[in-house]
């Protein structure tokens, strides 16, 4: 590879990094709204008894969240991987047709090695594992979170409707209209708590370890790894 090739490649890697870190953030922030609405519908359809029991609700919402996260991450991974492959494939195509008075073959190998290492090593950011245990409180999460190098144990404090229900119980002797209002308010508070928890887990939190934030860090790390190997 010539110096000009490396400068071109450097720019493409930077553009790839910028595009996908921005896209992960924008895409998940947009899609999580649909997830909220889906979960709201589930809660609306459940009886108060099921909501109080919490177990059935938790299981159902957890399943929906897991599936959503897996689908979205799969999509984002595939796009990032395809784009990066295209950058390197295009680079190889150019090199292969070069004037052979310069020997590029060694550098070809280096680039291939880097790309292979990036895709298949411990970082392995483009592998999409199952995330079935993501929302449990006791099980380590060796699925996608573990693979991404995120927290090895995912402790989720699933919000309870208790706070709302305490008030609800206290006033349940009131007129039917009043009690319906309290029930609605309690459920709304519950929905808000779930949204907050999902947002912090999937999109953004102050510890910088939500799925979106961690995925962006992985994209940045991959770009940095590739950039470090370039000799400008």
């Amino acid at each position: 590879m010539t110096s000009a090739d490396n400068i071109f490649l450097r720019r493409q890697i930077l553009d790839w990094r910028d595009k996908h870190t921005e896209k992960i953030d924008r895409h998940l922030k947009k899609e999580v709204i649909f997830l909220y609405n889906k979960i709201d519908l589930i809660i609306n359809k459940m009886s108060l008894k099921d909501i109080i029991k919490n177990e059935a609700l938790t299981k159902k919402v957890q399943g929906i969240f897991n599936q959503w996260l897996e689908d979205e991450l799969h999509l984002l991974f595939i796009e990032a991987k395809t784009d990066l492959n295209n950058i390197y494939q295009h680079q190889f195509e150019n090199i292969d047709t070069r004037n052979d008075k310069l020997n590029y073959s060694d550098n070809n190998e280096i680039i291939r090695d880097i790309a292979t290492a990036t895709f298949s090593s411990g970082a392995a950011i483009f592998v999409i594992p199952r995330i079935a245990t993501l929302f449990t409180s006791t099980v380590a999460a060796p699925g996608i979170l573990g693979t991404l190098g995120l927290a090895t144990t995912t402790v989720i404090n699933w919000p309870l409707i208790l706070a709302g229900l305490t008030v609800f119980s206290a006033v349940s002797v009131l007129k039917k209209n009043d009690s319906t209002n309290f029930k609605t308010k309690a459920i709304n508070r519950y929905k808000t708590a779930i949204r907050k928890m999902i947002y912090e887990k999937a999109i953004h939190n102050k510890n910088n370890n939500s799925v979106s934030q961690s995925l962006q860090i992985k994209i940045e790390d991959t770009a940095n790894l590739l950039l470090r190997e370039l000799i400008l």
Partner: peptide
């Protein structure tokens, strides 16, 4: 293709 301030033939890589 333009790379910075140089123009390359994308098929041959020639500047």
């Amino acid at each position: 293709v333009r790379v910075g301030t140089l123009l390359k033939d994308s098929a041959t890589g020639r500047i």
